[in-house]
Each structure stands twice: as C-alpha cells, then as structure tokens.
Simulated assay, not measured.
Amino acid sequence: MDLAQQREANFGKDNHLLRNQIISEYLPYVKRIVNRIAVHLPATIEVDDLINVGVIGLIQAIERYDPSRDNKFITYAVFRIKGAVLSELRSRDFLGRTTRRKIRDLEKAYLKLEQKLGRDVTDEEVAEEMDMDLEQFYKVKRMSSISFVSFEEVGYTSHSEGTSVSGSLAGGDTSDALSLTTMKEIKSTIAKNIDLLPEKEKLVISLYYSDELTMKEIGQVLNITESRVSQIHAQAIIRLRSKLRRDGLLEE
C-alpha cells in the first residue's frame, strides 16, 4: 500500500466523501486554468483530456496539502493543477524539437538585434537576421505564440506559489521548490523585464496574467480586435522569453 492509499484508508469514508465534495467545489478552477492554457495550444489538443489531468492535480493537492504551512489551499491547489497540466503537455512535446529550435532561434534573434540597435526591432529586421522570408517568419512566430511554455513556465500568475522554473512546476513536492527568497528574486527579474516592454505589450501582459482578463475582454478594454490582442501578446511573450532565457530562467 503506497502513501496515498494509506492516507485514504486512514481518512475513512467521511473523508472520502469530503474529498469528492472538494473536487466538485474546485472543478471550475480546474476548467479555468486549463482553458487559459489551451488558448495558446493547437486545436488538436483535447481540452477535456487536460481537464482530467487537472483533476488529478487537484486530488494530489487535497492529499498533500499541509494546513500548517503559510499558504491557502486554493493557492496550493492552483500550483498542483497547473503543474499537472504543464507536465502532461511537456510529455507530449506536440511542437517537436525542430520547431522548438526555431522558436529559440527567433527569441535569440530578437534579443541580439535589440541589444545591437538599442531599440524595438521590426518583423522584417528579424526575418532578415534569421535569413527567412516573411511567410516563414510569421509561421514560426505563430508557433511561438501557441507554445504552452510562457509565463506559466516561470509562475507569473496572480495565484502562483512555490517555483516553476523550467520544470519544477511540473509536479515536484513544494518542499523541493526553491526558497521563498529565490522565488522573490525570480519574480523581481520578471517584473523588471516586463517594465522594459513597449507600453501596449506591457498593458496586455498585465491585463491577461495579473487581472486574468480574456483576450476578448482585453480587446474591449483597449478598443482593438481580439486578433490584435493575440498578436500583441505573442510579441510580448517572444521578447520576454528571450530575456528570461538570457537571465537563465528558461532552459536552452
């Protein structure tokens, strides 16, 4: 009998019923987390499958939550749910190595040109740097925007807890996470890089990740189309990923 089974046996029938009640109560959180991640994924990814994985993460949170620690259950549950979903997506590697390499090259090209020119660069300039025509460039850029490894990878959400740097979010116990001090340093680095974004990109990032508005809602706030919001978001993610990779917060 493993540890989880021992806990289940010790809890008894009443606690089993309580667990089911908790799962039912927090299922909307699972669906919301999955749907926000799924926005950036290809249509071939089944959302229902990810919701099932998220429920497993919720069950893990129920079994492993320690009320003596200084965090709320919802905070820990979101951490576990998101970790389970991202771990599942990483295991599928739906983008493939070749596409991931192109995305990394795109990010590095942006960073190189911005450092060289000391200003924001255009798509045309980056395409030329990568020796691509614009059609090829925009294809890679679209793939970059649907990559699930965005701020979820480094835990930039209003409910994030613990650390999730390049894999630790994927399911390890919180006792294995980086120290609170280190996490604060990581969030500080992210915040500094966000401040360096053009104003509209910075606003979209804030509205999407901190205020948790949808792309459609952000479009209504900014009086632009949902498609344009998506483009601005993708551009911001590319810039930030390149900077976070430079700072060692993302794996090469």
Rank of each mutant, 00 (worst) to 15 (best):
E128H: 10
D48H: 08
R119V: 05
Y110F: 15
L196P: 00
A177C: 09
K13V: 10
N20H: 05
S179R: 00
S24W: 00
I238L: 09
T122V: 06
Y110V: 12
I103L: 08
K112F: 13
F137C: 03
F11E: 04
T163E: 00
I237N: 01
K141F: 13
G118N: 13
D195W: 11
D70H: 08
N223S: 10
P67L: 11
D66N: 15
D195I: 15
G167I: 09
V30M: 03
I238C: 06
R92Q: 13
M215C: 06
E153R: 14
L222C: 12
G248F: 12
F151T: 14
S145T: 08
K112A: 13
I194S: 01
G171I: 05
D123C: 09
E251Q: 06
I23V: 12
D195S: 15
E25Y: 09
R100D: 03
E212L: 13
L95D: 01
I190C: 06
R119N: 05
S179C: 05
E152N: 14
V229E: 12
M215V: 00
L18W: 07
V165P: 04
R97M: 02
Q115C: 07
S144R: 10
S24H: 01
K141R: 14
Q5G: 03
Y138F: 14
L41D: 02
G248Q: 07
L111I: 02
Q5P: 01
E199F: 10
V140K: 07
G167K: 08
M183Y: 10
R64E: 15
S210G: 05
S68W: 04
I23D: 00
L250M: 09
